[in-house]
């Protein structure tokens, strides 16, 4: 690797989505989390799941924030972990699709209940559980969209929301 860097970094905090392929072995997640806590990096979200059961590979998606210098450090630190196969900065390397899944529980009757359902419909959210007093909505989308939906549900009887954190993939035909 050869890289050039301006002498004066712009010390602005940015957010990046970083995808990492790792061996799916015990403790690999502890290594990743230990790296962030031990070095004081900020994680906004982190998701991990196996993506190749034959090769035993998991894919981690991290949303991290920091100055460009810190973000470069985060990638380099990932890279030196022994079970890491590949590190890719999806934000920097071109356009990517980023999505989150959320489950949102809303309680209410009468007018509020109808309104919640109407808004859910506008947001293309699905009802996955229903009682006469409550709904659980399922929704995938960008984090902003989910934020907006949860905000609208607040006055309509929001009980709980749970979110997966971002998963992301580069646009176009190329693999990671």
């Amino acid at each position: 690797m050869a890289a050039k860097k301006g002498q004066k970094e712009v010390e602005q905090v940015e957010q990046r989505i970083i995808a990492v392929l790792v061996d799916n072995e015990p403790g690999v997640l502890a290594r990743v989390i230990g790296l962030f806590s031990g070095r004081g990096y900020n994680i906004e979200s982190l998701t991990v799941s196996e993506v190749d059961s034959v090769e035993n590979i998991s894919r981690i998606t991290v949303v991290a924030s920091g100055t460009p210098m810190v973000l470069e450090q985060i990638k380099a630190q990932f890279d030196r972990l022994v079970p890491v196969h590949k590190v890719s900065d999806l934000t920097e390397d071109g356009p990517c699709v980023a999505r989150e899944l959320a489950l949102i529980k809303v309680k209410g009757t009468g007018e509020k209940r109808v309104e919640a359902l109407r808004i859910a419909d506008i947001f293309r959210s699905r009802v996955v559980d229903s009682t006469i007093k409550s709904f659980v909505f399922e929704m995938t989308g960008t984090s902003d969209k989910i934020d907006a939906f949860i905000e609208l549900m607040e006055p309509l009887g929001l009980v709980d929301a749970c979110r997966t954190g971002i998963v992301a993939i580069a646009r176009g035909p190329k693999p990671l």
């Binding site: 799916n24 072995e25 015990p26 690999v28 997640l29 989390i33 994680i43 906004e44 979200s45 982190l46 998701t47 991990v48 799941s49 196996e50 059961s53 035993n56 998991s58 979110r163 997966t164 954190g165």
Partner: peptide
């Protein structure tokens, strides 16, 4: 911060 985990099985390769 959100974290979700699915570590899969520890299969001895």
């Amino acid at each position: 911060m959100t974290i979700s985990v699915y570590e899969g099985l520890d299969v001895a390769k």
